[in-house]
Nucleic acid binder design. Structure first.
Lengths: 190, 190
DNA sequence: ACCTGAACACCGTTCAAGT
DNA sequence: ACCTGAACACCGTTCAAGT
């Protein structure tokens, strides 16, 4: 285990991010919490922006792994798919600051990250294809269908996190419910 | 016209926001651009956060007006609806920083804003209801259907802005296309 | 290779004045 | 009522050293 300060810095940054948003993560406070000088971070990250990118990268890789686990399940494709979309929305609502960090500035051009993202995306497309051949999703290009499903999960979670989902109580919708609505509308033969 | 410095400050803040994101809007630079001392903003806004909230508020009210215009069109409901959703996504992609500001921190609890948001939402629901009675949208609670449509437009635009929409070229999707896909899937009788 | 302390330019906010 | 200038505490980043 070479650099253990590096992990301590990442942990401290993530903690500050979760607690107070990106504005609260301060290089100096990160150093303080990691027990090093206000200036040691520069030996591990080129800048504050680079530290934030590393936090985002770590979280994205974690997400990729849990998605892979969910999609590898033995259940029918439509169940696995619904579960994965619910998890996506649940994650966004549980860690809104990480969610916003990751999608707020996709200047993260590291090849591992791009690869992680496209691997996750490919897995989702595979599951969509499986559901299509089971007749639980309509025909059509599976990648567009996957993008549509993901857009709903993403948008509904973002709107719910921002409090923009029907604040008035009548037909109250939450992100998971909207995902279910879409899946129901997509079910063929009705 | 009472306070014309106030508008100058809002304009300067918006300019900085569009150019460099929320991190680039600095109270001192805002003052500089507005031709006042680094400190005059405090006579018009309680804090930097309050200035940003006012920028978000102004943009939200503008949006409400253009949405109202689009929804008041004489065309068939499904055309008006499609147009409004396309405009929503187009706005998000044209002004990503304003979009992120507005949905990034919905602590904007001013009553005018809440009212503007819910008025816009009600108009969208009305259009959905009209499309339903024309038979171009499936039955079901119109507010949930409206939330679903908005979630797709919102999520697809956010993902496209972040570069997360199928970076690989095959079944390439953009926000407007995903909105169209959803409307096509929702068309009853097929 | 990793860390420290001083230093610089910048920022948000407050305060005592000015008109 | 609106604005200014000095001041304070804080921050990102750089630099010259230390081990």
């Amino acid at each position: 285990m070479p650099p253990e300060t590096r992990d301590a810095l990442l942990d401290a940054a993530e903690e500050l991010l979760d607690a107070g948003g990106v504005a609260a993560v301060t290089l100096r406070e990160v150093g303080r919490r990691a027990g090093v000088s206000h200036n040691a971070p520069y030996k591990h990250f080129a800048s504050k922006e680079a530290l934030l990118a590393a936090v985002a990268a770590r979280e994205l890789l974690r997400r990729r792994d849990t998605l892979a686990g969910a999609l590898a399940g033995a259940e029918p494709a439509e169940v696995v798919l619904r579960d994965a979309l619910h998890r996506y929305a649940g994650w966004a609502l549980s860690y809104p600051q990480r969610f916003k960090l990751i999608f707020g500035r996709w200047t993260i051009d590291s090849p591992d990250l791009a690869e992680a993202a496209s691997a996750a995306s490919a897995q989702l497309v595979d599951t969509v294809r499986a559901a299509q051949s089971r007749g639980t999703l309509p025909a059509g290009p599976p990648d567009r269908l996957a993008a549509l499903l993901r857009a709903v999960a993403h948008g509904a979670a973002d709107l719910e996190a921002a409090g923009h989902l029907s604040p008035t109580g009548k037909g109250r919708a939450d992100a998971a419910g909207l995902v279910d609505d879409l899946l129901a509308h997509l079910r063929p033969g009705r």
